[in-house]
Amino acid sequence: MPAAVISSYDPAWPARAERLLTEVRTALASLPGSERFVHEHIGSTAVPGLGAKPIVDLQVRMPVLPPLAELAEALAPTPFVPAHGSRPDSPGVHRDAGRPGDQAEPDAYEKRLFHIPAGSAILHVRRTDSPFARFVVDFRDWLRAHPEETRRYEQVKRRLADEHAGASDYDDYTRAKTAFFDEVQPRLREWSVRRAAGS
């Protein structure tokens, strides 16, 4: 996995994400309860105008996570295969880290991670009640609603990408972005609560 390289926003990213989500939705339709799955384009490529690694992030939320082998079999018609991370401690491969203020049982952070080996897309499969699944959607929507924060986040990402340019992977880059998440989280949570209340 190469070091992080931030590209200018590409208007083709949402269309690519939708095509892949259609493939994933079709493949997972054979699983019990698939009508309750939520399929989403997340991450920086889902925020108009935001520079990002040119890798589309997708998310599927489902009430119960099937075993990895069962999911891999269902996704076999798609280009996605299980991802194992660059290192044994690569973040976000088998589970997500809790965010400050989260109140959830540890099992809620369990996940399944898939990718396209060519490096063009990542698929995160999380439980419906995963606080991190909710966080990534709220963060995406908050950035969409706050262009000034989108610009600031891109500056942070470009700085971190430069700092970690010599790395053989972008695990440390991923971890370093947590400082930005921690900084904005109080405002993000307040905005999310207001939005849910319709105010």
Rank of each mutant, 00 (worst) to 15 (best):
A167R: 14
W142H: 08
P147H: 14
V93N: 02
D138L: 10
A118R: 13
A118C: 10
D96F: 09
A121Y: 02
P82M: 08
E105V: 13
Y109M: 04
P67I: 01
R134S: 05
A74I: 06
H146Y: 10
R140W: 05
D172Y: 08
S130Y: 00
A133M: 02
Q103N: 14
D169K: 11
D162A: 15
E154V: 10
R99A: 06
L123G: 00
F139R: 03
Q103R: 15
P147Y: 14
A161F: 06
F135I: 06
D89M: 08
H146M: 11
W142A: 03
G92A: 07
R144W: 07
G98Y: 02
L113T: 00
V136K: 00
D138A: 13
D172F: 07
L75I: 05
Y170V: 03
A83N: 04
Y173G: 03
F80R: 00
L143G: 02
H164I: 07
E154R: 05
R112E: 01
P131F: 03
K157Y: 05
Y170L: 08
Q103Y: 11
R140S: 02
R95M: 07
Y173A: 06
E149Y: 11
L75V: 04
P77M: 08
V81H: 03
R134K: 15
A97F: 12
G98A: 15
P91L: 06
L68T: 08
V137R: 09
P100M: 13
A133V: 00
P67M: 02
R95H: 10
L68R: 09
R158A: 14
H115R: 12
D141N: 14
R95L: 07
R134A: 13
V81L: 08
A161G: 09
A69S: 09
A145L: 12
P117Q: 12
S86G: 13
V136D: 00
K157R: 12
F132T: 04
I116M: 06
A133E: 00
D89T: 10
D107I: 10
A72Q: 10
E73D: 08
A118P: 04
R159A: 15
D162Q: 14
S86E: 08
P147W: 15
P117F: 11
T128R: 10
